[in-house]
Computed example of a mutant assay.
Amino acid sequence: MSGKHLYHAPADCPVCGDTLITTRKGCLRCGTEIAGEFASCEFCNLGQADLDLLKVFLGSRGNLREVEKHLQVSYPTARVRLDAVLAKLDLEPSGETAARASDEGAEEAPSEYGEEVPGEGSPEDQILARVARGEITPEVAAQLLG
């Protein structure tokens, strides 16, 4: 690959909003081009910040404390951001899984780092923790934080 800067392709059509597909691919080295209808990967729609978060999460073998350090945010905020990336990938965020388990009468396993302690952390962190646990929606959190 040459030193040319490659831009991230948009995921949605700027005219109608429908999902875009790739119809042409080319080699920067030899100039070969192919045309057709190619599916994009589910990760291609993520922005660079989301991809960086996933790289840190996967590189640390799922250690959310490492994501917390990388983002330089509180643990609940890191968890909310990871849940947002999971939602973009149509994966169920952890708060919804925990809520469903308790609704079905299953015993919820304690979190890796213990449960949030009421009264600890800033009010913003407590609101984000409630979103992460599935107690409130992101929209309600935005109103509370607004």
Rank of each mutant, 00 (worst) to 15 (best):
V67G: 11
L89H: 11
Y113C: 04
A39D: 06
E33N: 04
H70K: 02
E33C: 06
A78M: 11
A141T: 02
E92S: 11
G59Y: 05
G17H: 13
L20A: 13
E37C: 12
C30H: 02
D50K: 14
S102W: 06
T97Q: 12
E108P: 03
E135T: 07
G95M: 09
K55N: 15
A9V: 09
A49E: 03
G62W: 13
G121L: 03
S74G: 08
A129V: 01
G3V: 00
L64V: 11
K88D: 00
V56C: 08
E37Y: 14
C30V: 13
G3A: 05
A106K: 00
C30P: 00
E115L: 15
I136P: 04
K4D: 09
S60W: 07
G119T: 00
A141P: 02
A49H: 13
H8N: 15
M1W: 14
V117D: 10
G47P: 09
E124V: 05
V73G: 12
P10F: 13
D90S: 14
Q72A: 08
G47F: 05
A109R: 11
T22K: 14
P10H: 15
L71S: 10
D50P: 14
A11K: 11
R79D: 13
Y75A: 05
R29H: 11
I127Y: 04
V73A: 09
S2K: 02
S40L: 09
R79V: 12
L86E: 10
A78E: 10
G47W: 12
D90L: 12
V85S: 07
V117N: 06
G59L: 12
I34K: 06
A142K: 10
L6H: 05
G3H: 06
R24H: 15
V73N: 04
D90H: 13
Q143W: 06
E66I: 09
V140R: 00
E68L: 07
H8S: 15
L20N: 15
Y75E: 08
G47H: 10
L91I: 12
E135V: 14
N45L: 08
Q72H: 13
K55L: 15
E108T: 01
I136H: 01
E37A: 14
E37K: 15
V131R: 01
L51G: 01
R61K: 11
A99M: 09
P14N: 13
G105P: 00
G3K: 12
S74F: 07
G3C: 06
H8K: 15
E33H: 03
V117P: 03
R79F: 11
R100K: 01
A109L: 04
